[in-house]
Design a protein around this nucleic acid. Structure first.
Lengths: 241, 241
DNA sequence: TGTTGTTAAATGTGATAGCATTTTTGATAT
DNA sequence: ATATCAAAAATGCTATCACATTTAACAACA
């Protein structure tokens, strides 16, 4: 096999651009396709309700249908893509009820993950998270929404992965993925303000090793950074499916 | 296509039997394979560490490799199957740490799901759950572990799916799936005792619509029914990976 | 007996083709 | 204009084949 043909060959005007992703040489085509699609969904490259086709994605990514199908199947199992009754694919719709549910779920999962990671927190880890947060600040001033999303997630992931036996991370990622298509919309309505301040609070709580303070900061980060923006976005444009 | 060739064609002595699954005519081969494998894993048909091959499964299920690969990919994304560095597949190992983590995660998720469903509980629903629980009692006296697992899950699912906007159910199913390979082992060590009594408590709490009581019963159901049995099983046989 | 190197088998991966179904298009009639 | 229906295009699904890599088997040798 070998020769990866990752150059997109054609793209009609409605199809959003699918950003490339860093990948190692020994990665399978299927995995590469998965990561690219995943990233695209995560950063909101596809709006809710967007239709996808196997052949279309294969064309966009310059691959055959087989690896695309496997990547799409994975994303379906992660609830990032929906299979309709006629077997066609689309990015799930967002409703106010589902959005609220996802936010609450994200809160519960991340609180649990943080609590189970807290005993494993070291000063080195906190420094590493601080570096990520600094980079995040840079992305904010540069107004780079893709990097903002990526770094924000890296910040949280660095904490939750400290627990060596953690099984919660894949579930958190699934929720992030499901919130992804709504990101673009939220960003546009709520502008830059975002949640950077809360990260400083999280870091401070980690330095104290205080669960209570950490939980408060985390909830504030999630609920204020997303819930308010989401409610705004719904008030304006979204209509229940 | 149409003609489904679902008869297993051959099975060597080491391969566990993969029970068939009810499926509708308009189901794709890939989905059928997914459901069968999923069910097999969920009820503990494969022990932790069991090796799987695409061709082997295709042979066992009487299908070609393509739908098997898609089914396996989905199960990988749900953390029910693990992809090793050499790209080969196996059912994940279980360690005491991971088991503890999965139990805690299951507790958090199901508590959340129950709390979000409680406002939607009706007497009809309670009656339906009571029927399932009665069937479960029957499976217990019949000593049918597969039916016990299926009905126990149906009991919990009936509750958690009441919330029309629920997004938690796929996550719960993923945890159940990851606990599946350990079931057989737990059943054998802890015998029949199981958790039937707790279901009666859950039903009583639902009739009162009391969140506090429901939470206690649920935690008891999960922690006593699984955690203790799991600890026993580990003490005897299991070795960390 | 244990080790090494070679050969054969097994396995995962990806592209392609053929088929069934769905969707779209476009023409005709009302 | 609108509705109806037939043809055409698009789409999803699965079997198969060829290839690269990994694993197993086995012979030769120390």
């Amino acid at each position: 096999m070998s020769k990866k043909l990752n150059g997109r060959q054609q793209m009609d005007q409605t199809a959003p651009s699918i950003p490339d992703v860093t990948y190692t040489a020994d990665m399978t085509t299927q995995e590469h396709a998965y990561l690219r699609l995943r990233q695209a969904i995560m950063v909101g490259a596809f709006p809710p309700g967007h239709r996808l086709t196997i052949r279309g994605l294969a064309l966009d990514l310059g691959l055959s249908q087989t690896p695309i199908r496997e990547a799409v199947r994975r994303l379906c199992s992660e609830n990032a893509i929906e299979v309709l009754g006629n077997r066609r694919l689309r990015v799930p719709m967002m409703t106010a009820g589902r959005f609220e549910e996802l936010i609450q779920l994200r809160t519960v999962l991340e609180l649990h993950a943080a609590a189970r990671s807290l005993p494993h927190v070291s000063d080195i880890v906190i420094d590493r998270m601080a570096v990520i947060d600094t980079e995040l600040d840079g992305a904010v001033v540069a107004n780079d929404p893709v990097e903002m999303t990526r770094l924000n997630q890296a910040f949280h992931r660095a904490l939750y992965c400290l627990n060596p036996d953690q099984a919660v991370m894949p579930l958190v990622e699934s929720i992030w993925l499901q919130l992804g298509p709504f990101q673009r919309q939220m960003m546009s309505t709520h502008k830059t303000h975002y949640c950077i301040d809360r990260h400083k609070e999280i870091l401070a709580a980690l330095r104290q090793r205080t669960l209570e303070t950490l939980s408060q900061a985390l909830v504030a980060d999630i609920q204020e950074g997303l819930a308010l923006a989401g409610k705004d976005a719904f008030r304006e444009t979204q209509v229940p499916a």
